[in-house]
Design a protein around this nucleic acid. Structure first.
Lengths: 214, 214
DNA sequence: GTGATAATGTGTACAGTGTCCACAATATAA
DNA sequence: TTATATTGTGGACACTGTACACATTATCAC
C-alpha cells in the first residue's frame, strides 16, 4: 500500500499516515465536482476511509477545511496564470509585452473559472480578509499568489509607460473586479448557459475594456 | 388581527390567509441578516407561525423559496437604481446626462451590494439562466429589471454619441461585470473589511474605468 | 528497553436540517 | 348540503456538524 496514495482504499494501520493531505485532496475533488455544498465533512472522511471525527484532529471545523480548499484553489489559479504567461512570445517591445502580460493574467483567470467553477467559487468566497494576499498555501510555482501576479503585470505596465503611475494604486482591484465579475456571472449568475466559445469572445472584449480604461 | 400582518403572532384561524407572502417576507428578512445560509426552511415557517411542511403548499422546495428571495432582491436593486437615477439633475447636455445615467446605475449597484450584502449575494446566485432578465418579480416601480435599466443607460449613451454603436452589443455584460466583481470582492472576497468611505472611492474609480473603456 | 505523555482515530450521542407520507381542517363549488 | 380541492399538521427518515469519552499508537525521557 503506497503511503502517498491517500484515496479510498482501506488501510491496515490504525494511523493513517497523511490524513491532512488525504482530507484536503478529497475535499478539493468534491469541490471540483459539486461546488461548496458538496464539500461535506462526513463524505470527505468517508473518502479518506476514516471516521467523521478524525477530521477534527487536523481541521478545527468544516469552515477551516473549506478555507484550506480555497487556498488550494487559489494556488491552482496561480499556476494557470503562470502557464498562460509562459505562452507569450516576447516581441521585445516593452509596451506590447506588458499589455500581453496583463491580458494573459486576465485570460487565465477566466479560463480557470470556466474550467473549475466549483473550486473557483470557493477560492474567493471563504476568506476572512485580505491578509492572505501573500499566503503560502495559495501561491503558484513562482511563489506568487494570483493577486501578486496581477500586481506584477500592472507594475510592468507602468514601467512600460502604458499605465500612468497615478492610476497604479488599487488598480489590482479594478482589473480583478472586471474578470471576477464576468466569471461569477458566468458560473452562477444570469449569464450561466452561454456557450464557451461565446464566453471566450466576451472575455476578450472585457479585457479590451480593462486595457482601455484602467 | 390584521390580515396583512404576516409576522410572528399566533393566528386563531386554521388557515393563514397569506402564507406565501409571509414566508417570502420572513425569508427575505433572514437573508438580509444572515445571508443565504440563514434562510432555513424550518426557521422561515417558525417565523410565519406555521408547521415546516406548510411551506410545501407554496414552494416546491427550499430552492424555489430561495429563487423567490432572489427575485425580490433584484426588485429592490431595481428600485435602488431608480432612486439614484432620480437624483440626477439634468444639464441639458445629452452626452453629460447619459454619462451621469450610467454612473448612477453603477453607483446604485454598489450601494445596494454594500447595504444589503446577504440579499445581494442571493439575488445573483440562484438563477438557472438568463431567461429572467425580464422577470416580473424582479422589476422595480418602473417595470424594468436591473438588467433592463442598465441596458437603457447604455442605449442613451449610444444615442448621445458617447458609445460607438459597434461596441453596444453585450456592453451590459462588461459594465455589469465590473461593478458585480467589485461588489463580490467586497462582500465576501479578499477585499472584505475595507471601510465604506474607501470602498465608495474605489467604486467611483472603477466606474471611471468603465466609462473610459466601455 | 520501559514507561509516561502526547498525538491521532473511534463510537456514541445530540440537536438541527430538508422532505416524504398519511391525516385533519377548512374553503369552494355542484 | 354534500363532494372535492386546498391548505396546514404530526410523525418519521436519512442526513448533517460536532461535543464527549475512550481506544490505539507514536514519541521521547530515563
Amino acid at each position: 500500500m503506497n503511503k502517498t496514495d491517500t484515496t479510498t482504499q482501506k488501510r491496515s494501520t490504525y494511523r493513517h499516515g497523511d490524513l491532512y493531505r488525504a482530507l484536503l485532496e478529497a475535499a478539493v475533488e468534491l469541490a471540483r465536482q459539486g461546488g461548496k455544498d458538496a464539500v461535506v465533512l462526513r463524505e470527505v472522511t468517508r473518502q479518506a476511509g476514516v471516521s467523521p471525527n478524525a477530521a477534527y484532529r487536523h481541521f478545527a471545523d468544516l469552515k477551516s477545511l473549506l478555507q484550506a480548499v480555497a487556498w488550494a484553489g487559489q494556488s491552482m489559479l496561480a499556476i494557470t496564470m503562470e502557464k498562460e504567461l509562459a505562452t507569450i512570445q516576447l516581441s521585445g517591445d516593452k509596451a506590447q509585452d506588458a499589455r500581453a502580460e496583463l491580458r494573459a493574467v486576465g485570460t487565465a483567470y477566466l479560463k480557470f473559472a470556466c474550467a473549475e467553477p466549483g473550486l473557483f467559487r470557493l477560492a474567493f468566497s471563504e476568506q476572512p480578509d485580505m491578509s492572505n494576499a501573500a499566503n503560502g498555501a495559495s501561491q503558484g510555482r513562482s511563489g506568487l499568489t494570483p493577486f501578486q501576479i496581477l500586481g506584477k503585470a500592472l507594475d510592468d505596465l507602468v514601467e512600460a509607460g502604458e499605465l500612468p503611475a497615478e492610476r497604479r494604486p488599487a488598480a489590482e482591484f479594478f482589473a480583478w473586479s472586471a474578470v471576477h465579475g464576468l466569471a461569477m456571472l458566468n458560473i452562477d449568475g444570469p449569464m450561466r448557459g452561454v456557450d464557451s466559445a461565446q464566453f471566450e469572445m466576451l472575455g476578450q472584449r472585457l479585457i479590451d475594456m480593462v486595457e482601455r480604461g484602467i
